[in-house]
C-alpha cells in the first residue's frame, strides 16, 4: 500500500516539477535530450527518472512556449545532435518556478512538518 502511495505521489510530483528540472539544467549550459534525462537521474540519485514518453514531449512543449530553443549542432568529432538552450523568457519562468516551489515547500512544511524540527 505504501509502495503504491509512493508511486502515485512520485508520478504526480514528477509531473509538476519536470519543467523546473529541465529549465534549471539548461540554465547551466545547452544540452541535448539524452544528456538532460541522464543528468536528472544521476543528480537525483535515481529518485527521478524520465523516459522518452515524458522527456521529449516536455522538451517540445517548452520549445513551443518559447522557454527553450532547440537547434541541430554538429560538434567536432561527434554526430549532429539537437541541443536545447534556455531563452530569456525561459529564465524568467525558471525564476517564477523557483519562487513558487520555495513557497510551496514552506507551506507543506507548515502543514505537514516534512523537515525535521
Amino acid at each position: 500500500m505504501q509502495y503504491m502511495l509512493r508511486n502515485l505521489l512520485g508520478r504526480e510530483v514528477k509531473k509538476g516539477s519536470a519543467e523546473l528540472l529541465i529549465l534549471a539544467l539548461l540554465e547551466e549550459r545547452s544540452r541535448h535530450g539524452y544528456e538532460i534525462g541522464k543528468l536528472i537521474e544521476t543528480r537525483s540519485d535515481g529518485a527521478i527518472t524520465f523516459q522518452i514518453a515524458s522527456l521529449y514531449p516536455m522538451l517540445y512543449r517548452l520549445e513551443k512556449r518559447g522557454l527553450i530553443d532547440g537547434r541541430w549542432v554538429e560538434k567536432a568529432g561527434q554526430r549532429r545532435r539537437r541541443y536545447y538552450r534556455l531563452t530569456a523568457e525561459g529564465r524568467k519562468v525558471l525564476r517564477t518556478h523557483r519562487s513558487f516551489w520555495h513557497e510551496f515547500l514552506e507551506a507543506l512544511d507548515r502543514v505537514a512538518r516534512i523537515r525535521h524540527a
Binding site: I52, A53, Y56, P57, Y60, K64
Partner: peptide, 18 residues
C-alpha cells in the same frame, strides 16, 4: 520499452506541432 507508451505519439504531436 521506451517506445511502448501508447500516449507517446499524441503527446509528441501535441507538444511539438504549431
Amino acid at each position: 520499452r521506451e517506445l511502448l507508451d501508447h500516449k507517446l505519439v499524441r503527446e509528441i504531436r501535441r507538444a511539438s506541432s504549431a
